[in-house]
């Protein structure tokens, strides 16, 4: 059976601090050890606390991903930029690790002429690897006026990601969920934009922000999907 090169990523989109029971940083650590990258997007406004900013930065740091703080109007671009950056970052880290073990140097230490071919390779890799991306979307009460823009941003993200040569699939988990559950899988991994659109339309906002529990849920869902895959 052919092994596929797969990049697994969780993007946490939230506008505030977690106030569920678990510790998101602890869970993030667990997830990162499984080879899954966590990137975070913090939607900031005038009322954003230092603590909430710190939390998203930490989660991304532990998750070996990228953290971006953005205003709501730039959410669309930020989602795509975060995905792109974290793919590049992960590839660069993997390549550097190999280079170090072979010729005891990293890409940055090579002069621009020597590293040109390696850069080309990394760029091509970023385009051809298959991508499974879970968007963990905050649907707590404070997201009420932001949720429509978040939905549109996720849709256009899939459109843009589909321009890649490799397969790009998006799944969406909303947290919390209205029926007292901490999270719910709104849409399973798909490349199909109309399916994604339909699934997103049922999302509503209310409740608190159980980030840790949602991260755990994402891990369980990702875990069940992947046998015989080379993990990047």
């Amino acid at each position: 059976m052919e092994k596929e090169v797969l990049f697994k990523q969780i993007i946490l989109v939230t506008d505030g601090e977690s106030n569920g029971e678990g510790d998101p940083i602890e869970i993030a650590n667990m997830i990162s050890e499984q080879g899954i990258t966590i990137s975070t997007i913090g939607i900031i406004g005038e009322n954003s606390s230092q603590k909430s900013k710190y939390e998203v930065e930490q989660i991304a740091k532990i998750g070996r991903g990228v953290c971006e703080l953005t205003e709501l109007s730039k959410l669309q671009q930020t989602m795509q930029m975060v995905t792109q950056k974290s793919i590049y970052q992960t590839i660069q880290t993997a390549v550097n690790k190999e280079l170090k073990s072979i010729i005891n140097t990293e890409v940055n230490d090579l002069n621009p002429n020597s590293r040109e071919k390696i850069m080309d390779l990394m760029d091509n890799l970023s385009d051809t690897i298959n991508l499974k991306c879970i968007i963990l979307l905050d649907t707590s009460k404070s997201m009420t006026n932001k949720i429509n823009i978040a939905k549109k941003s996720i849709l256009s993200l899939l459109n843009i990601l589909n321009s890649r040569e490799g397969k790009s699939e998006i799944a969406v988990i909303a947290f919390p969920h209205i029926e007292r559950e901490n999270y719910k899988l709104i849409c399973d991994f798909t490349e199909d934009i109309s399916l994604l659109k339909e699934s997103l339309s049922i999302i509503t906002t209310s409740g608190m922000t159980p980030t840790a529990e949602a991260l755990e849920g994402a891990l369980q869902i990702l875990d069940g999907k992947l046998e015989s895959c080379l993990v990047l």
Binding site: Q76, Q77, D127, S156, N159, I160, N162, R164, E165, I193
Partner: peptide
């Protein structure tokens, strides 16, 4: 042509306005 979109601006990109892919 045929490779991924790396940088773009929503106002000017057709994928932020329409659901079909145009590459």
């Amino acid at each position: 042509i045929g490779q991924s979109i790396k940088e773009y601006t929503p106002t000017y990109n057709i994928h932020c306005w329409r659901d079909k892919p145009y590459y």
